[in-house]
Amino acid sequence: MTARGVNGGGALTLLRLVAALACLETLVQGLLAGMLLNGDVASIDPHGVNAYVFELLVFLQVVAAVLVWRGNRRLTWPLKAAIGILAATFTQTALGLASSLAAHVTLGVALCAMQTVLGVRAFTLRSDHPVTTPA
C-alpha cells in the first residue's frame, strides 16, 4: 500500500474523528450487550439508545467519506466501507428489534471488526496539506 497523499485535510480529519468515535461506540455496545446477556435487563434501554447514536455516527462517517472522495476520486475504499457499515448497521438494528439474538450478536461482532478496520485505515492515509500550528 502506498502512502498517497489525500487532498482535503479537513475532510480526512472529520473521517478519522467520526470513525474513531464510532469504533468506541461499538465497544460500548458490546459492553452493554454483555451486561444484558449476563442478566442485567436494565441495560436494554441504554443498549437501544446507543444503537441509534452509533447509527448517527455511521451516517456522519458516510458524509465524511463522501467529502474525502470528492477531493480524491480514485480513493473509493473509505466510501465503499462506510456505506457497507451503514447497511450492516441498519440490518443489525432490524435483527435486534426482531429479537434474532444469534444473528444480532454475530453481526455485532462483525460490525466492531469492520469499524475498527475502517478507523485504522483512515489513520494510515496522509494529508497532502498537513495542518500547521502557529508558532
Rank of each mutant, 00 (worst) to 15 (best):
L31K: 08
T106H: 07
V105T: 09
A103I: 09
A94G: 11
A19V: 02
A87V: 15
V58E: 03
A103D: 14
R70Q: 14
L111I: 05
H104T: 09
L101Q: 13
T91P: 01
L24H: 09
G9Q: 04
R73H: 07
D45F: 03
G34M: 06
R4E: 13
S100E: 12
V63W: 01
G8V: 04
A42S: 15
F59V: 12
L32N: 04
I85W: 00
V18M: 06
R16A: 04
G108E: 03
L67T: 04
A113R: 11
V41W: 00
M35V: 10
A33D: 05
T133M: 13
T26E: 05
S127P: 13
S127G: 14
V68M: 01
L118M: 05
V49N: 10
G96W: 02
M35W: 00
G39D: 07
G119Y: 00
H129W: 08
L95P: 04
V41G: 10
L14A: 15
V53L: 03
Q29A: 09
L79G: 01
T133S: 14
P134W: 02
M114Y: 05
L24Q: 12
P78L: 06
T124D: 14
L56D: 14
P78M: 07
S127V: 12
G96D: 03
R70C: 12
A51V: 06
A20K: 03
A135C: 09
L32V: 06
T26G: 04
S99A: 14
Q29Y: 05
G8N: 02
G34I: 07
K80A: 14
L118Q: 06
L56M: 10
A94M: 11
V53Y: 01
H129T: 15
G84P: 04
D45H: 12
V117C: 08
I44Q: 10
R73N: 06
G39F: 04
T106I: 08
A113E: 11
Q115W: 02
T133K: 13
L15I: 00
F54A: 15
A19I: 00
V6N: 03
A88V: 04
A81K: 05
H47D: 01
L32H: 01
L56K: 10
L15H: 02
L111Y: 01
Y52H: 10
W77V: 10
L17I: 00
L67Q: 09
T132W: 08
T89E: 09
F59H: 13
V18G: 06
M114S: 14
V62S: 09
T106R: 15
A122D: 02
T116I: 07
D45C: 07
L67H: 05
V28H: 08
M35N: 12
N38S: 13
V120D: 07
T91V: 11
N7W: 00
P134D: 10
A87R: 13
N7G: 05
V41A: 13
L36G: 14
V62H: 01
L67I: 06
V49T: 12
L101E: 12
T89H: 05
H47M: 09
L111S: 02
F59K: 12
L15V: 05
Y52A: 07
N7R: 10
W69Q: 13
V28R: 11
F54V: 09
R16W: 02
T133R: 14
L17N: 12
L75V: 04
A113C: 11
H129Q: 15
V49I: 10
W69T: 11
T13L: 12
V66A: 06
A22Y: 06
S99M: 13
F59S: 15
E55K: 14
A11R: 00
A82T: 04
V18H: 00
